[in-house]
Amino acid sequence: MPELYLRMLDRVLTPVLLVLSIFLLLRGHNLPGGGFIAGLMTAAAFELQILSRGEASVRRDVGRYLNRALGLGLLIAVGSGVVGLSRGAFMAGVWVELSLGPLGELKLGTPVLFDIGVYLVVVSVATSYLLTLNRLAEEASRRNAPQ
């Protein structure tokens, strides 16, 4: 059974980690960050969940989305490259500027899309590693427990 403090920590830290990962994902275009780091950060949040709630419950909640998220991420990443063909070359950056009135300008482009694809791939791959590793660890500890 997980420790009480771990469950408390989980309540506080998981939302923080998830928000931070989104922040890193969007920041990544010009500053340190990006899809890969953000994906690992999200996977870290899931690992915290696994440690505090057990592998089975996390697998029940996110496990079945992982395969599809992996596929979706790859599709988005390749798709963002195809959009670049409109500017003459695969993966060329295409940018759209949206004016949000008082909030200022929002520049959106295919590199962000590519990053989101990378993010999805990294999250799903890293989380499935973590789920499998934790299952093995939990099985081992269960086997050793009764003695």
């Binding site: 079945r64 395969n67 599809r68 992996l70 596929g71 979706l72 790859l74 599709l75 390749v78 195809v82």
Partner: peptide, 16 residues
């Protein structure tokens, strides 16, 4: 490069 990757990703959705 892109076509096999794209198709491979698409196949992940099929038949869950």
């Amino acid at each position: 490069v892109a076509l096999p990757l794209f198709t491979g990703a698409l196949l992940l959705f099929i038949g869950r």
